[in-house]
């Protein structure tokens, strides 16, 4: 879509709060400086699930915002300390709330979100079956092939057009 359209808006809003010059050290730079490639892969994976708060809609892995960099540094530290993914995620949630999670936890206020797609699928398919049954019954009851009549009318009209 207007991917990037008025990212300007993002920059303006961001500048208003933090007035930071963006992207002095990009994530690539930090990663290049970090020693451990395994830890780095884990960091990338984790931070793709975490939302950058000051950005418009980016994860912590992709964002060059200052806070995202600080948080990557924190996460790196925790990985080094041997913390589990869950502990790291809990650390983030304790500070910024569920908002930082791109994969919302399954809980009361997200029940509909997680059950929704399955419910929609079941609803859709059962509505489909119900419709087919009802339709078959109605078509049988109508017996008089109104549709054939209609079809021939349409055919006639189209033929007329073709001949024009």
């Amino acid at each position: 879509m207007k991917r990037l359209f008025a990212k300007l808006a993002a920059i303006l809003a961001f500048g208003l709060y933090l007035n930071a010059t963006p992207a002095l050290a990009s994530s690539a730079t930090e990663a290049a400086l970090a020693a451990d490639p395994v830890a780095e892969k884990r960091l990338t994976k984790l931070s793709e699930e975490l939302r950058c708060l000051v950005c418009q809609n980016q994860n912590i892995a992709d964002s060059n915002a200052e806070l995202a960099q600080d948080l990557r540094r924190e996460i790196r530290g925790m990985i080094k300390e041997g913390k589990s993914d869950k502990e790291i995620i809990d650390f983030m949630v304790a500070r910024y709330g569920d908002f930082v999670l791109y994969r919302p936890p399954v809980q009361g206020n997200t029940l509909l979100l997680w059950v929704g797609p399955i419910a929609l699928l079941i609803f859709g398919l059962s509505a489909l079956i119900a419709y087919q049954r009802r339709r078959a019954a109605r078509v049988a009851a109508e017996d008089k092939p109104l549709s054939a009549d209609e079809a021939s009318r349409a055919d006639a009209l189209l033929k007329e057009l073709d001949n024009k």
Binding site: R51, N59, G97, Y102, R103, P104, N109, T110, P117, L120
Partner: peptide, 30 residues
Amino acid sequence: VACATVLLGTLYPLLIDALGVGKISVGPPY
């Protein structure tokens, strides 16, 4: 159903916020 799923995920944060029961993000992992 696929479209409704995308709509649900897109508007869900708004719904939760409007009902005043929290603030969440729905992103690529979902």
